[in-house]
Simulated scan of single mutants.
Amino acid sequence: MRVVVTIQHPGHVHFFRHPIAELEDRGHEVSVFARESDVAIDLLEAYDIDHEVLAGESDSLLSLAAVQATYELRLLRRARRIDPDVIAAIGGVAAAHVASMLGAKSLVFYDTEHASLITKLGYPFADVICTPDCYRDEIGSKQVRYPGYHELAYLHPDRFDPDPDALEAVGIDPDTPFAVVRLSGWGASHDVGHDGFDDPRAVVDRLEDAGLRVLLAAEGSLSADLEPYQFETSPDRMHDLLAHATVVLSEGATTAAEAAVLGTPAVYVNPLSLGYTTELDEEYGLLFEYTGEERRVRGLERAVSIVDEPAETWERRRERLVADRVDVAALVVRQIETLAQSREKSRSPTAAETGHP
């Protein structure tokens, strides 16, 4: 079968890289098309995934509309030549639109309830929408729920084994407790009107006072006094650092969830709650969600308090999570193959059409 995968964010590369490899190993043709976004192209190259870049980055909502239109038009032209059985994506606006024009099947994965612009533009055109069980919205008959999280497509223990050598690359001794602090850029369409820590310097100072070495991963610029805390590592090594951190303090939900499924306690500080952040908090106690007015103060103090808690606590909780949830990469492959088969059946001529019983 012929499959098209679209990539518009670094997280999409992580999510699809194992399914792409497995589909190709099973003899299927996979074409990957991407839009430049942060380190997405760097990741595709790091993982040696053949791809074609169809559009550049955007720096505002207005420019995003123009970039998206360019991306969809070029994707339509490429896909028309390929005649894919399935076009798969996260969010899936371009995938759903192009598939509907070509008679292909579209398979969309999503986990972000408050991204209403994406869901309004993409969901009506999609054939199948796969969401985690904890996704709060009911989509209808095209929705397929599964017991897992996007992050388990690439961080399930069957898929990922943390490399301790990543610590040396950023100057961290294996015995040194450290915190990874993820500061968001707040430029996404669903971030409008929201913000994060107003004084990152105070965050760093408080964590250092608790005995933690601090590594900053920030979108956008930092003040000169904080630049030494911003670490440099290849984009495919970030998860190694998350796995070995003492605690992760994040304004971004994805980074917090990645840490949690790796068994590293994560503190998520953001006014927007999601189904999966709440479940990782209430069901597994691996993520601590702070969304209210005092979220910055309360979240920072929770991150500090984690320093004194035994590592065995998080190991036990992670074991239970892994036992409850599926290998999402394997699920992606099954969903793509099933949808491709349904398209083939719908295109096969009936007995009446062929004249044969």
Rank of each mutant, 00 (worst) to 15 (best):
D281H: 10
P310T: 14
D209T: 14
D42L: 12
H239N: 14
L212G: 01
A330W: 02
A40M: 06
A21N: 06
A79L: 05
L339G: 01
I139H: 04
I20C: 07
S106R: 02
S106K: 03
V180Q: 00
E301R: 12
T119L: 12
P228N: 10
D85W: 02
S234K: 13
E319H: 00
C130G: 04
V333H: 00
E312D: 15
P265V: 03
S346M: 14
I41T: 12
A94D: 08
V3Q: 00
L107I: 10
H194R: 13
K105Y: 05
D175L: 14
S189T: 13
I90C: 09
F178H: 02
A311R: 15
G140N: 12
G292S: 15
D236E: 15
V261T: 08
D308Y: 10
A217C: 10
S31P: 02
L339E: 02
S342Y: 03
F288Y: 13
T233D: 04
H156D: 07
A257V: 11
E232R: 12
L167N: 03
Y229V: 08
L23Q: 05
E294I: 06
L287R: 01
Y71S: 02
G187N: 15
G56E: 11
A253H: 04
A329E: 02
D59G: 11
A352S: 13
P174W: 10
S250W: 01
G56L: 10
E208S: 12
A166P: 01
D236N: 12
P349L: 15
P162L: 08
V93K: 03
H14T: 04
D111A: 14
V128W: 02
P162S: 09
T176C: 13
E168Q: 13
M101S: 15
A323Y: 04
A46P: 07
A40G: 06
W186R: 09
T246L: 06
E113Q: 11
T313R: 14
Q68M: 12
V4D: 02
V307E: 04
F125I: 01
A115N: 15
D127H: 14
D137K: 08
I87L: 09
R316S: 11
H97T: 12
P157K: 07
I90F: 06
H194A: 12
A179E: 05
L155C: 07
A94R: 00
W186P: 02
P271G: 08
R343S: 06
T264A: 09
